[in-house]
Design a binder for these strands. Sequence first.
RNA 1: GGGCGUUUAGCUCAGUGGUAGAGCGUUCCGUUCACAUCGGAAAGGUCGCAGGUCCGAUCCCUGCAACGCCCACCA
Length: 734
Amino acid sequence: MESRYDIKEVETRIAKAWDDAGYANPDVCVEKGVAKKDAEVFSMILPPPNVTGELHIGHAAMLVIEDILARRNRMQGKRTLWVPGADHAAIATQSKVEKLLQKEEKKSRHDLGREEFLRRVNDYARKSHDFIVTQVKRMGASLDWSREAYTLDDTRERAVRTAFKKLHDLGLIYRGDRVVNWDPKGQTVISDDEVVHEERTAMLYTFRYGTLADGTPFPIAISTTRPETKVGDTAVAVHPSDARYRDFVGKEYDVVFCGVPLHLRVIADEAVEKDFGTGALGVTPAHSAIDWEMAQRHRLPLVPVIDERARMAIAAAPGSPLNGMKTAEARERIVEELRAAGLIEKEEEVPQSVATAERTGAIIEPLPKLQWFIAVDKAFTDPAGRTATLKEHMRDAVRGGGIKIVPAHFEKIYFNWIDHLHDWCISRQIWFGHRIPVWYRGAETFVGAAAPAGEGWKQDPDTLDTWFSSGLWPFSVFGWPPQTEKEKGDLAAYFPNTILETGYDILFFWVARMILMSSALTGQVPFRTVYLHGLVRDAKGQKMSKSKGNGIDPLEMADKYGADATRLSLVIGTSAGNDLKLSEDRIRGYRNFSTKLWNIARFLEMNRPGGADGTHGIVGAAAVADAEKIAARDEAKALAALKREVDAHLDAFEFHLAGEKLYHYLWHTLADVVVEAEKKNLREGTAEEKAESYALLEHLFLDAIALLHPFMPFITEEIWGIFRPGRMLMVEPW
RNA sequence: GGGCGUUUAGCUCAGUGGUAGAGCGUUCCGUUCACAUCGGAAAGGUCGCAGGUCCGAUCCCUGCAACGCCCACCA
């Protein structure tokens, strides 16, 4: 044994040995007899990293927790499958490549055209993918690469098109003209979940539209932070119980507002807040989601006045100077005019939450658009024969106990989200992604997994929200809808997944969507348990980011302190759903632990009977000493108790407690106490005493090392190989 | 506005109905004998605040406060 533990040499060699052995593939385990053919199954998918760049510390934390699960279950003899993959991440990847293109060639995607641009994005995605794969392997993740999948490959495209077709046939996918979240910068529609609300202060203006034909002022004053949208108003809404305005309800008025003729009806609607502003609301059905809904209820006309570039476009007043202005400019102009006309009654600053696009940061412009949606409130009959809405399915999957969420309090957060859920807008005006499997010819529409026969069909130019394909992942990775025997076998064996492990930040984006898709398309829950981990933050608790420069690169840490030490630092000190504060000091601390383990191993080897010179002689000590005698010793009983504790913690998903106890046992019990106590015997004892001492220490050490394997797989595998050559710890019985 | 969570030693966090623990940090001592990437020891906390239940609460209940997160169509 080397006196110094050469982290990089060992970790590289061991990683290759695992690769060669192929035990991450359960079929190989069955073939080689380390798992029984009919053994219990443990299956899990790797949340596919986006092909937008590199592995960050958050990915590393995810890999570690999942690898601990996979390795322990594999050692327990289960047919264990952990499936790797990558996500094309439509919008994220496209905008990344667009940025590069702009920076390096000063070109937009339109300069290249759809085909050439997509070629570039796919190139980028491939390189990014290859890099991520090497990084994932470096962390020691025991994934079955023979089953690797990509959300945009042919098999997954088949799944996406089949899913679209089926959901459409069930009446759950529909095309609708509605006010949607338009991102003027990204030039695409986005879903409600991709909207981020930012707190800002805004000016709230209270004013009257203008003067009526008979010279009297418009009878009701309204309040708004967006006067420029008021040129699109078609009603004024008040609360039904508001006595101040009761007499006006039902009346209609013609008024000219800043040169734009408006026809306004006074309506009564529960959605109006009596105490806000004047208690009267100017209704702009085309540029506000709530107003649009009100307009539906009262059959109000829709008058769009803002275009896709977020500029004014007032059809009713083609000559208006407002046309072509940005909304902010138009707002100023209108306020000035109102001031000049003496129509403003009040101007006050109010806190306001502005809707912005998660990806581009642009302020969302609600616009009426024809888009594809998934209906969440429409009843349908699922493959299991149950009739309910998607919302009900999603609720019942968790409430009925089919899915258990860890930690449990996220169940409440999940239900709260479902309560507020609206129909999911799934079409995007971007190029990278799954093209919507719908073809048009004149007034005809065809929905299907493949293009229709005949001339003149044109496919919908839009693509699908990236979460549409991610939502299918728990079964699409196995080739759903199955065609081959292998796909059928995999689906039957590994779906539903035993567990889904991911970060709590994508509970809605991803976890909820998988439950939605799975219940509608398979009639089953996609997984039995959801374990949610927290975010990795820096030592001050701040989010790590490149711009702040406070990020910790897991690969750099792995090279410096070892993947093992990096792994342990990402597990100890955090628990389910809680954020982890990480510093390089902590990682260094666990590197010291690796060194300690190495030195215990060296000490043992030096004292091995018949091998004092360090040669790997026959492993005879255990045989010489009476195994029963060893097992009866208090030290062995203490270790057995430790194993029970570790098992209990792992069963309860308390990885940090299990890791801490093993750490503490190996260092502060085994090394500091037991080894010290046995030193006398090892040096001065009889041959028999020496053998017993050695056998005891070896027994305790190797058992503890085996328990530690899921946490620190590299060094434990290496040490195991020294004392038990020829057998891989990775598949030793737990 | 609705929902969720956190509050324990300087820092990061465990934990239990019976007058508190770990790691790191600090201080002191030691160490040619597996390991200075080491060993031993010490200092350090009225367990956010106020009530309640109990023989007894840091742990259970109620209220409050501070901090954080998520959601949201009061314009």
